[in-house]
Simulated assay, not measured.
Amino acid sequence: MVHRLHQLKIETALENQAGVVLLGPRQVGKTTLAQDIVDQRDAVYLDMERRADRQILEEPDLYLDAQMGRLVVIDEVQLMPDLFGSLRGQIDRRRRNGHRTGQFLLLGSASNTLLHQSAESLAGRVSYHELTPFTQSEVGHEEMSKLWLRGGFPDSFLARDDSTSMQWREDFIRTYVERDIPAFGLRIPAEALRRFWTMLAHTQGGLLNAAKLAAGLGVSGQTVGRYLDLLVDLMLVRRLPPWHVNAGKRLVKSPKVYIRDSGLVHALLGLETTESLLGHPVIGGSWEGYCIENLIAAAPRGTEASFYRSSAGAEIDLLLKLPNGTLWAIEIKRTTSPKVGRGFHIASEELGAHERILVNAGVHEVPGQGGVVAMPLAHAMERLGQEV
């Protein structure tokens, strides 16, 4: 059993807000976490994928008025977009009746779609949180290799062996492109989207080259943009932006693109075992993406993530601007060497980075030149978790 660190955050948010919106891709564990919360409260759970539960909310005010004072959990809420207007009125009425916190927990599988639907009607009334796949802090640092290979989706990570895990991920990908995405009303050929997803896996962590992707797929650049927007919206792909402050340098303007779960990268490329991964050219990009997702998950809420690259060769793999204003420059290398390239030092000086870290495959913290400290991923995550 893996204890989700997000559960305490959600419970705390419910103590302070009338509603909480919990976002995350399908099968990431939102429902399980919500059920754990329901078991501890006077609550009711409704799933919008069940016809009977949708019928209950066809006249939402009639039902929700009777639940005043209870926590109402609504799963896959994006399937009923018309519900958000009623929820606004419900929250306001409950506040007037003295029920100011812990009234609604809304679960959704599409970030921007859900946010656009709810942002205007629920502004100031709900708190937004994202549930990621398992992180290294949740499963234990001794499970790092397994988590990197299989990814953090619960059923994949907890499978009895690597073969079963791979089969789950292949089924997950197939279900997404053939059933889940069409369920959002999006008409995208399943085979084309699968090919696009696989092309992204081959270029994991590379700069977005829409023209090259379009040529490989035989589609337009606009179509590539639409496919990418979709996978980003479903929280399956991260579009890491370049550093947005022009420091008087010629900076790369294209984003870097990562499939967010390393296990999906490996499934798309047919890499079932650690041995097959270690012998594949994607190993560097896969490791970098794995570390970036864990570091962003460990960072304080409100942290801004980007990367830095200038035409002169100065480069930083990950920049984290924390809510307190400090800037962390992070280099990621799957090596035990405590050294970083000259470009990292130049970029860190240009930006005035407060923390300069090399996340590597070593097991100890080792100070290096220019204020850089080499450390394992686990130590970097712990340090980020201590920031306020």
Rank of each mutant, 00 (worst) to 15 (best):
L5P: 08
L319F: 01
A297I: 02
E331H: 00
E138Q: 11
I10T: 09
L377E: 08
R250L: 14
R238A: 05
G29W: 08
L295Q: 09
L62D: 13
H141T: 15
V252E: 11
L57Q: 05
L147G: 09
V44D: 07
G325T: 02
L228T: 02
L62I: 11
H141M: 09
L271K: 11
R125L: 03
L322Q: 07
L22K: 15
L122I: 10
P300D: 01
K253R: 15
S163H: 09
D42F: 07
F134Y: 10
G89H: 12
S111K: 15
V72Q: 09
P182H: 02
Q35A: 09
V265D: 04
F307M: 02
I283H: 14
K333P: 00
Q27Y: 10
Q136E: 08
D39N: 11
S286M: 05
H364P: 13
G185V: 01
Q35I: 10
G368R: 11
R174K: 13
G185F: 01
D42Q: 14
F153V: 06
T31C: 01
I259M: 07
L208H: 05
L377D: 05
A378M: 05
V139N: 07
L83A: 05
R125F: 02
M144I: 12
L62R: 14
T12V: 06
L64N: 13
H354K: 08
A211I: 03
Q67L: 11
L105C: 06
L264A: 04
H99R: 14
L131H: 08
L320I: 02
S121M: 06
Y45A: 07
V245K: 11
Y128V: 04
G385K: 04
D65T: 13
A214I: 12
D42T: 12
T303H: 01
Y290Q: 06
Q136P: 11
H266E: 07
L5D: 15
S145N: 11
R356K: 12
H99I: 04
I181T: 04
R50D: 13
V257D: 03
G343E: 01
L33S: 09
F157A: 04
T175D: 02
L207W: 05
L23G: 09
G270H: 12
L234T: 06
Q167F: 09
K249D: 01
S220C: 02
A159D: 08
A159S: 15
E304N: 13
P255L: 01
P281L: 06
M375N: 10
G385Q: 06
R334K: 12
R160G: 09
R41Y: 02
